[in-house]
Amino acid sequence: MRTERLVQRLLGLAAGCSVAVTLLIFGFMVILGLPLATGGTFFRMFTSAWLPHQGVYGIAPMVAGTLSIASLAVVFSVPVSLGCAALISVLGSGPLPALLHRLVRFMTGIPTVVYGFAGIFLLVPLVREWAGRGSGMCILSAALLLGVLIAPTMILFFSDSFASVPRTYLEAAEALGATPVQKLLHVVIPCSWRGLTSGVVLALGRAVGDTLIALMIAGNATAMPGSVLEPARTLTAHIALVVAADFDSLEFRTLFACGIILYLCTTVMVIFTRRIGAAWEQQRW
């Protein structure tokens, strides 16, 4: 009985440590970023440009870069993912959809850096030729590649929630003579909108959080991007680039502001998806 309690304590300690790490990551960023807030530059930072030579360290262009690349990636990826998920779980027949399912699962294991590497030497030249100007390293290229990267997250989530639609509903629709497409449009999709929303939010989170694709493909310019064919820098890439350059300066401190934004974004998305999930659980009972 005493060993049992000891083991329980040890296991609880491991769980507690893991929670502590999560809090510590946030705590470190707040403490190291705090001088910004007391210096009064904290809020100006979100609206001004990045002009290190003039001593202005605004991160507005990076916020814009992150938002445009991530949202564009999701816009590209949602329809394709929806189509693939529908093919896998409702519309498709024969061996091909099963193969596609396997490919999608395999995609989750492909290293991001390999995507980026292939993107630089294959996708970037294509975009450059198509656009007819610039280096090809731009928001569009990054968003296209990121769209491929986040697709499996969505497809797997979508097809799982399609599969969890109660069989009785499907049978009812079938008995009324619905075609597979009608089943999809009138039964499956309406019944699984919670799963669909969660999937999109999760994929958006992945797109916002990804560092490598943007760092390798988007061109990393610090100017405010004007169109999708211009280069941009994301918050994540900004963190990677500035750390590599400098150690203890105001410039470096702005990274923690970037970090706090990203952390809070994640937290909001996680809480949102959990809420949806919780409501969904309740509905099932």
């Binding site: 769980a15 893991s18 929670v19 790490v21 999560t22 809090l23 510590l24 990551i25 470190f28 960023m29 190291l32 989170g205 916002v208 959080g209 990804d210 560092t211 994540t236 963190i239 990677a240 750390v243 150690f247 203890d248 990274l255 923690f256 970090g259 990203l262 952390y263 994640t266 937290t267 998305m269 996680v270 809480i271 959990r274």
Partner: peptide, 27 residues
């Protein structure tokens, strides 16, 4: 409660974990 924290830890961009490691080393 713990599950929420683990979801956040799983969801935060990996670069932030890197930034954390870097800050700890600096500290």
């Amino acid at each position: 409660v713990f599950g929420l924290f683990f979801d956040i830890l799983a969801g935060i961009p990996s670069i932030l974990v890197g930034l954390f490691g870097f800050s700890v080393a600096l500290f």
